[in-house]
Each structure stands twice: as C-alpha cells, then as structure tokens.
Design a protein around this nucleic acid. Structure first.
Ligand SMILES: [Mn+2]
Ligand SMILES: [Mn+2]
Ligand SMILES: [Mn+2]
Ligand SMILES: [Mn+2]
Lengths: 220, 220
DNA sequence: CATTCTTTTTTGAGTAATCAAACAGTTATT
DNA sequence: AATAACTGTTTGATTACTCAAAAAAGAATG
C-alpha cells in the first residue's frame, strides 16, 4: 500500500537526491528531514527497499529506483499544482500554501488533479518558481544560479525562492522579490555580508548571504 | 487525536441518528454502515465514549454527545461544500463527487474550506440537495417528503436525491430529475409498482417504488 | 421455561508507524 | 594502536485500527 507516509518519504528522498545526484542519501539526513529518530528511518527504508522503491546500502545510504522516482515525481506534481491552485483559484497567500499542499497532496485524486491542471492552463511552475513535473515525460532542467553568484552590475530575473518558511516568503513578497521580478546587483560587500539589489523598474533592498542564496535567478 | 477514521465514524453515526432521532444507534447498524466487523465497532465506540464524543450503553446502542455532534456537523459541512466545489469549480460530474469528497473532507483545512464557501457564495445545499451545515448555528430543518407520498395529480419540486450510487445519480441526470426540477405525479399503480411522473415543462418517466422513495420533494 | 437464534462483546493477533535506548560499525583524534 | 566521536541499526514498546473466532447476553420460539 502506498500510504501518505510512504509518499512523504519518497518525495523527501527525491528532493535530497537532487542536491547531489551522484551520492547516496545518508540515513541521518533522511531521518533529519523527515523529523523522525534514525531507527524509524531505518525501519521505513527497509520496507521501501522491499517494495522495490529504493536501493538501500546498509551504513551507506539510499537511492530511489526508477519506480520510486516516478512515484516521487507524481507526488511532487500534485504538491505543486495544488499550491498554484490554492493561490490562483482560492486566493490563498503563497506563504501558506506549502503547508496546505503537504496534506492535500495525499488526498487529491488524479482526476481532480488533472482538472486543476486544466483550469490553470497546464502551468510549468508553482508559486515559488519550482518546476511542476509533467504528467508524463522527463522533468525539465533549467540552470538557475543563486543571487550570491552574480557579479556587481549584472542583471537577472528572479526565478525561484527555495525556502518554504512563511515568514521568509512574506518578507520576499513585501520586498518585491517574487519570481518574475528583474533585479540588478548593485554592490556586494563581503565584509558587511551585504548584497545590495536594485529592483527594476524601481526599488532597492539589501540582503545578507543567508537570504541571498535562497533566491535563485536566471541571468538576463 | 481526531483521525480521519474518527471523523468517518462520527459522520456516519450522525447520519444514522437522523433516521430516527429518538432511538439509540445499534452497534450492528454502525458496524454495517462502517463496513467493519462488529468487534471493531465496539472497540472504536469505547474510545469515542472515553473521548466524550458519544454516549455508549453496552448492548443498547450509542448516541452522539453535543460535542460529538458538533464535530460530525463540521465534517458534514466540509464534505458537502467540497462536493459542490468539485461540481461547480472543477466541473466534475455530480455522480462522482461523493467518493472524492469522502477523502478530501479529512484533508481540507478550515481556511481552504471557507475560501471555497466564499467562492461558491455561501451555498445552502450540496449537488444532491443535502443541506450544508452552517459554520455556526443550528442545522436548518426542511420538511421533505418522498415522491411515493404524493397523491396522483399533485405537483412538487425535486429537492434531494438520497442515494450516492453513481449509476443511480447518472440515471437521475439522464431522466431530468435533478434537484430543482418541477414534476407532477400523473399516476400510481400499486399493482405494477409504477409511479408515472410528468416532468415540467416537458418529459415523462416511470419509476418503481425503490427508486421513487429515494427522491425527496417539496410540495408545490 | 428450555432451546435456539441473533446481537454484541471479548480475546488474541496482525499491520503500519513511531520512539527510546542499547548496541554496533565507522571514522577521526590523540 | 587505543580511544573517542559520530553514524546507523537493533530491540522492545506504544498507539491506532483492524479481523477472526470464541464467549456472553438478550430476544424469540416452540
Ligand atoms: Mn505530505
Ligand atoms: Mn512550492
Ligand atoms: Mn471520509
Ligand atoms: Mn452529497
């Protein structure tokens, strides 16, 4: 049975995998992101391995099988379409939809999901700029860079905000740094740990590296 | 913890209660409608009684406490608003939304629910004509009668279809007997077990008593 | 009123998911 | 190499929900 617990594990494992596709995901990392004690993660991973959803090397780590990855992408598609639906159709704030989608992603049927997808005109990105896995076919790979990699003077479009914390997302919103915005890095002072951005057409904001590296941009 | 299992039990008990508000709901009935073995119902009922959600008379039956009833109505409100939302906003067929809502009713937050309610302009009835419990305040009581109680010649408006079976609902749709339709009972032949209806402004259909008593009407 | 049938409860067991804490294996440090 | 620190696994228990089957209570019938 694919319980919602299994769906959550697969989705998290997939996301961890993406941060370093070559390496195995260590058990400690998995336990940490799933917020369970290590023994729980070990037990779960054994049953997922038995179901053929991942490969498990004891004391080494794990990696999703193609079947496990397909399921993970399915959950991720649901999650991101639901997020966008909640923002676009029901008018929720982008800072709160992640939490809502965390539950709904396990309850929405394929039929309902495809209706949402149609109503939203087959969107390619969720409210945070994360790509929506297509119903079939490969996940599109775009090459985004963190704001911290820009050279002073360089322009770029904000493409993604990779932190689901409502307080941070609300700050991004207030500052006018939502995906789609064009910015220019005006100055970077390593000593002050300050990235000064010009928001086009008007506006200015200064960020520390902790915040700046959560903002991914596409070079203009 | 209010698990979705608990929500389902409370909702079913409430609905059973309504069929005969004076009597206790017998354990056998509960087990049957919940599709569990009697022992399972007994075990569950004990924990619900311990949580103060219902009163349990061993070998007598059960009755929801005010707290249990409030929770049940909350679930029922979610269920019915979701059904209408799926029909109105996502364009699903009324024959399939009951099953979808059965899962979603446990996953939709109060915030999302109130957004749906607002988008639907605070509806009072679900697609099947069942009343939507208000967020606060008492459940409205309307006096509907089954089609089988009409006298030949009498006119009435179809108000509710009380069977969630998709095949039956599709038949009702095909026959033009959806809630809101005005009909007139043209003839009732007890020997043939046939209720002949005129559908206004035009149309005619004949129903047996099994089908006719699932259709509730409001006298014109 | 004794027997039979029906309904309900009890008992014992299983699955899924979790934690605490003991244990074992691996890597780093002295 | 010995020891310490870290990481991961095992073991034993718990909670929520469920079923199968035995036992008990109550109702109906001859
Ligand atoms: Mn989730
Ligand atoms: Mn997102
Ligand atoms: Mn349900
Ligand atoms: Mn309904």
């Amino acid at each position: 049975m694919i319980t919602s617990t299994v769906e959550n594990y697969l989705k998290r494992i997939y996301l961890e995998q993406q941060t370093d596709p070559a390496a195995l995901v260590p058990m400690g990392k998995l336990a940490a992101v799933m917020q369970v004690v290590p023994g729980t993660a070990t037990a779960m991973v054994k049953t997922l391995a038995d179901s053929g959803l991942l490969e498990y090397e004891p004391r080494g780590g794990i990696r999703l099988t193609p079947g496990g990855e397909q399921l993970a992408l399915h959950v991720l598609r649901r999650h991101r379409i639901i997020e966008l639906f909640l923002v676009e159709t029901l008018g929720l704030d982008w800072s709160e939809v992640h939490e809502e989608a965390e539950t709904l992603e396990h309850a929405v049927s394929d039929k309902v999901l495809e209706r949402m997808d149609r109503l939203l005109k087959h969107p390619r990105f969720d409210p945070h700029g994360d790509p929506i896995p297509p119903a079939k076919g490969r996940m599109p790979t775009d090459t985004l860079i963190p704001l911290t990699s820009l050279q002073p003077g360089q322009r770029a479009d904000i493409a993604r905000v990779s932190d689901q914390d409502p307080a941070f997302l609300q700050f991004i919103d207030r500052s006018g740094l939502t995906p789609g915005t064009t910015i220019q890095l005006q100055a970077h002072d390593p000593q002050a740990d300050a990235y000064v951005l010009k928001i086009l057409p008007k506006g200015r904001v200064s960020l520390g590296s902790t915040a700046a590296c959560k903002i991914l941009v596409r070079e203009a």
